[in-house]
Design a protein around this nucleic acid. Structure first.
Lengths: 150, 150
DNA sequence: TTTGAATAGTTGCACAAACAACTATATGCC
DNA sequence: GGCATATAGTTGTTTGTGCAACTATTCAAA
């Protein structure tokens, strides 16, 4: 059983994503203790809107690697929080463009600060070159499973 | 903005765990097309029971990095599927020991085969030493966030 | 021995994810 | 133009997660 291509033993925690879960929980706690009523999932949508405002729900699906119903409901909740608003596209009425409100724009600085803090805590004592290797591997894994077949 | 300790740019996908999500989805699809009515989360509980049968729900919490209510419900559903059963401990009646049924035991071989397949597909063309670095980094991240403070 | 704290587990609630089925709009081909 | 097909988004259902509040049992200390 041991002589496979990789040592599989502890690799199954890859599947369950314990590390990313730990990071997400830490960041969520920082949000909560800062009085931000915002989930990590909502934040991840805002994150892409801060990079490019006014993208469609479908583009948010691709950017966040979520399916359409998930984005529909995340945008629903972000609208309820008055952080974004849906604007039907003039040229293609199937499309909703999602725009940040003033309130949504205002959250960028504080939350990105907390996210940076969280990553610094997570990566404490990890040499930068190892972080780069890790990023590279995770990117290949993602590409292997998403771009290729399926 | 760029001169931080780490290049943070693409690091935020760490938080959202896109790679582990991709792996989990691929494995779930394999389960579905094999006619296995089993979620990845249920499988992750069975995985620890295959390693050690009869552990308590609290031990499953620690092993799977989930909170107690999550394990309560996962065990509920695994019991409904007749894959495990709760047995109250004789020595400490607060504790439920979780035991695999015959059906639960039978799933090990097939599902681990599919999990191995999935990891091979995920890690295709990734050199083993880089996988090791990646594992090491993810372990440190987990330890930094879970063991230390919190 | 009793009382208070700690531990194991359950339940209620809000939010999120995956899948299927659905509506509405756009596009391309006859 | 009209019809088939593709695309964008929504809704319903089941499952899982995180938090808070709760019950039951154990343990420890006065």
């Amino acid at each position: 059983m041991p002589n496979n291509q990789f040592k599989k033993g502890e690799l199954y925690s890859f599947i369950t994503g314990k590390a990313s879960t730990a990071i997400a929980r830490r960041l969520q706690k920082k949000f909560n203790t800062s009085g931000l009523h915002l989930t990590i999932e909502q934040w991840s949508v805002l994150y892409h809107l801060w990079k490019q405002d006014g993208i469609s729900q479908q583009e948010l699906c691709n950017a966040t690697y979520r399916d359409k119903p998930s984005i529909t409901r995340l945008v629903d909740n972000l609208e309820k929080l008055s952080l974004v608003r849906r604007v039907a596209s003039e040229t293609d009425r199937r499309i909703n463009r999602i725009y940040l409100t003033k309130q949504g724009q205002k959250l960028e600085e504080e939350t990105m600060q907390l996210a940076d803090e969280t990553l610094n805590e997570a990566l404490l004592s990890v040499p930068p070159d190892k972080v780069d290797v890790c990023k590279e591997v995770l990117q290949i894994v993602y590409d292997n499973l998403v771009n290729c077949n399926d």
